[in-house]
Amino acid sequence: MAFYSIGEVAERCGINPVTLRAWQRRYGLLKPQRSEGGHRQFDESDIQRIMEIKRWIESGVSVSKVKALLDENVVTDVPGWRSIQEEMMSMLRQVNPARLRAALVELGRQHSSEQLIDEIIMPVRLRLARDHNTARVILSLLDGALIDYAVLRIAAARKDAVKDALLVSWGNDDRTRLWLEAWRLTGQGWRVDVLAEPLDSPHPEFFPGQHLFVWTGRALTQRQTQQLAHWREQGFTVAIHGE
């Protein structure tokens, strides 16, 4: 059986070694073997698991919830999230935009932005995204309603917010998720403006004096980590949203 070092695995999977160590130590997602010298050793099954973890995270699932998915457990069933997800799936199949908008408003009254995004919206979006047939059409319908709802919530929060920020997507083209993350920031007291198009580089020099949040939706690459450090050394206020 072939074994690979953490550096070899990081290069093969496109993931920073620091991230792999965090997945093991902090989240218990990986259990590599150890060499006689104490170094991590990964086999092909470990690499397959790493790529599955990466796919879940890139689909919008938070890293803290991935282990339960990999172990085929119900992630959010304790407070009844699963039943709410099923209700939304059933509603989406009816293709009724007005009813969907009303449902989002009602759910927004009952739950925080964190709960609605993480426990209901993202699991439903993930299920729809994995279906390559008619569910993709329904996903498009849902995304349109979500952006519309997020924009309304962001606008409503402006009058009560006390601090300004600009949110930019850095290398992630999930526009729906960007608007949802902007809404999430309003729950933390931010008056948020959104740069709607994803950028390969956020260029903080274009926004002098502004608090800039950048969102990637995944662990930073080595290049992004270096770029972020460079911006901060130059005195720009740049934060990684969701870090």
Rank of each mutant, 00 (worst) to 15 (best):
G171W: 00
R177H: 11
S90Q: 15
W231R: 10
S201D: 00
D174G: 11
T176N: 12
E52G: 03
V194S: 08
Q188D: 10
S140W: 07
G108P: 02
S35G: 11
T216Q: 05
L126I: 04
A22E: 01
A165T: 09
R55C: 03
K65D: 14
E36R: 09
Q234K: 15
L167E: 02
M1V: 15
L212N: 07
L141K: 05
V74E: 07
M51C: 09
R101C: 06
I50A: 03
G7P: 04
A239L: 07
E205C: 04
R34N: 06
I47Q: 00
R158K: 14
Y149L: 03
F42G: 07
L128W: 12
V124I: 10
E205N: 10
V162G: 08
K65V: 01
R26T: 11
Q188T: 05
L100Q: 11
R26F: 04
G209A: 08
H132L: 11
G38N: 10
A229R: 15
D77Q: 09
L29W: 10
R191C: 01
E243R: 06
T237V: 06
D148T: 05
F213W: 02
D71Q: 14
I53Y: 10
V95H: 12
S113F: 02
D43W: 02
E58T: 11
T176F: 03
A129T: 10
K67F: 10
A22F: 08
R175K: 13
G242T: 05
L141E: 07
I121T: 15
L116E: 03
P79A: 00
Q224I: 02
V66T: 14
R21Q: 08
W215D: 01
G38D: 10
R34P: 10
Q224H: 06
L29E: 06
G187S: 08
R175D: 01
P198K: 00
A102Q: 13
R223W: 01
H132F: 02
E205P: 12
M1I: 14
H241Q: 06
W81M: 12
P208C: 06
D174E: 08
I15A: 09
R158S: 12
S83W: 05
P202G: 00
V194P: 15
E106H: 09
Q224E: 09
S35T: 15
S90G: 11
Y149K: 01
I240V: 13
I6C: 03
P17F: 14
I6Q: 07
I120G: 07
Q24M: 12
L142D: 01
W23Y: 14
I53W: 05
V95F: 11
P97W: 09
F42A: 06
I240G: 04
E119F: 11
